[in-house]
Design a protein around this nucleic acid. Structure first.
Lengths: 190, 190
DNA sequence: GTCTATAGGTCGATAGAC
DNA sequence: GTCTATCGACCTATAGAC
């Protein structure tokens, strides 16, 4: 377990505050106070508030897109790929509960990097969409509206960060299994 | 079709901007500019920025809680109640796409009314939870983790405002049916 | 690496003319 | 009902001492 650098401490603390109030409502003084230093001292480690947001969001967005690419290019069944996407989200949300909030809600405050973020997100969604459409074609999935399937699953996965903190007693593997059961098999008792 | 009052225009315009950037990042000057007046003129119709947020959020939260109470107290099956909850969300999200964003993302910026908002939300979630648990007991629903069911469905419904604008060609009744199919029956082809 | 002090700008909101 | 002008608070960021 390496010691966190001051910069890493700042980013982690900022992400925590961004989750509570959103990027725009958090001031440099808030971040500094949480670290028990003065706002001016932050600038010895980061170049701007915008710089912090970039670190919080972009690394996470890249992790999702890279994970999706690996899953998409594997030779598993489409159902198994969806299972793996669920595991990917559970895993990342468990490790980065605070950053997930900014990824979902603060990306529009990215200045220079908003285009890159949207490219990553679109690439991710396109691959997910192809897996679903392919699954319907092969008969693995029911012939429901693929957009409704995509956004239903994605909505549940993107909100994981909101309720994982309330369920710390459940481990990631178990949560992943429960989610797969509900999202793939549905909830009706047939 | 009655003419919108200036106050209603302000609230609607503000909600639109809140959806794009969030409450904290929207200034009174932004709202005024969108209405082609000066910021000072807004105060002839509303008492504060906080006052606008209250109007945007609270009326919608009450609509959800009231709708849920009616559904909860009906004598339908639990599956049918879940169907009705889905319709309730689709209906409200179609009529109020902008306010939905603030309801989800800006409620923490409510000052005096945050407690009342949380009471409404908790009441809503408690009733939904009871319907799910009751459905499992009666055998209508599979014996999955009720919290996972609750938050999977709720996440999809709460994010409706994000993708309804992209699918304006689909009518509410059809969307509601598609969602019920996916969320209740699942996506696997059995 | 942290501090004090402060520049330069924007914020919500008010006063008062028309 | 909208305007111009402005107040006092707070914002990000920098300069320079220690």
């Amino acid at each position: 377990m390496k010691t966190a650098t001051r910069k890493e401490q700042i980013i982690k603390t900022a992400a925590k505050l961004f989750k509570e109030k959103g990027y725009a409502a958090v001031t440099m003084r808030d971040i500094a106070k949480a670290l028990d230093i003065k706002a001016a001292s932050l600038y010895n480690h980061i170049t701007s508030k915008q710089d912090i947001l970039k670190y919080v969001i972009i690394s996470l967005a890249e992790e999702f897109t890279n994970g999706m690419n690996t899953i998409y290019n594997s030779s598993e069944s489409n159902i198994h790929k969806i299972d793996q996407i669920i595991s990917l989200h559970v895993d990342i949300a468990y490790r980065n509960p605070y950053q997930m909030a900014s990824l979902n809600n603060d990306w529009m405050h990215l200045e220079k990097d908003v285009t890159y973020y949207l490219e990553l997100r679109d690439s991710y969604e396109d691959n997910f969409r192809k897996i679903i459409k392919n699954g319907i074609e092969t008969g693995e999935l029911t012939d429901a509206n693929p957009e409704v399937i995509l956004f239903s699953i994605l909505s549940a996965l993107r909100n994981l960060y909101l309720w994982i903190p309330k369920k710390e007693d459940v481990n990631p593997a178990e949560l992943s299994n429960n989610l797969s059961q509900v999202l793939i098999n549905g909830i009706i008792n047939k």
